[in-house]
Amino acid sequence: MAARGDATRDKLIDATIRLVRDIGYAQTTTRAIAQAAGVAEGTLYRHYPDKAGLFAAAITRQTAPITAWARDLPARAGSATVADNLIDCLTRLATLRADIVPFELAMLTDPELARPADTAGTPEPGPPEFLTRYLHAEQQIGRIRADVDPAKTAVVLLATLFGLAVPPRRTTDALGDSWPDIADAVHLILDGVGAPARN
Rank of each mutant, 00 (worst) to 15 (best):
13 I>W: 00
13 I>C: 00
16 T>F: 01
18 R>P: 00
18 R>Y: 01
19 L>I: 01
19 L>E: 03
20 V>R: 09
27 Q>K: 11
28 T>K: 02
29 T>R: 00
29 T>G: 00
29 T>I: 02
31 R>D: 09
33 I>A: 01
34 A>L: 09
35 Q>Y: 04
35 Q>F: 04
37 A>E: 03
38 G>H: 05
38 G>P: 04
44 L>R: 06
45 Y>H: 09
45 Y>A: 05
46 R>G: 09
47 H>N: 10
47 H>S: 02
49 P>Y: 12
55 F>P: 01
56 A>H: 09
59 I>H: 02
60 T>W: 03
60 T>Y: 03
65 P>G: 13
68 A>M: 06
69 W>G: 08
70 A>F: 09
71 R>C: 07
75 A>D: 14
75 A>W: 09
76 R>V: 11
77 A>M: 10
81 T>G: 03
86 L>Q: 06
88 D>L: 11
91 T>E: 13
92 R>P: 10
94 A>Y: 15
95 T>A: 14
96 L>Q: 13
97 R>S: 14
97 R>K: 12
100 I>W: 03
107 M>H: 05
108 L>C: 04
109 T>M: 08
110 D>A: 12
111 P>H: 00
112 E>G: 09
113 L>W: 12
113 L>T: 12
113 L>A: 06
114 A>L: 08
114 A>G: 07
116 P>E: 14
117 A>P: 04
121 G>V: 05
124 E>A: 15
125 P>M: 13
125 P>K: 06
127 P>R: 06
129 E>P: 03
130 F>C: 10
131 L>G: 02
133 R>V: 10
133 R>T: 08
133 R>Q: 15
134 Y>N: 07
137 A>I: 04
140 Q>V: 14
140 Q>A: 14
142 G>A: 08
144 I>T: 03
148 V>Y: 00
150 P>W: 01
150 P>R: 04
151 A>K: 14
153 T>K: 00
153 T>R: 02
157 L>S: 01
158 L>N: 03
159 A>L: 04
159 A>T: 07
162 F>A: 15
163 G>D: 08
165 A>D: 15
166 V>T: 08
166 V>W: 12
166 V>A: 12
167 P>G: 08
168 P>W: 08
168 P>Q: 12
170 R>C: 06
170 R>T: 14
171 T>N: 11
173 D>C: 06
175 L>N: 06
175 L>G: 04
176 G>A: 01
176 G>Y: 07
181 D>T: 13
182 I>W: 06
182 I>E: 05
185 A>E: 11
185 A>Q: 11
188 L>T: 15
195 A>G: 05
196 P>I: 01
196 P>H: 01
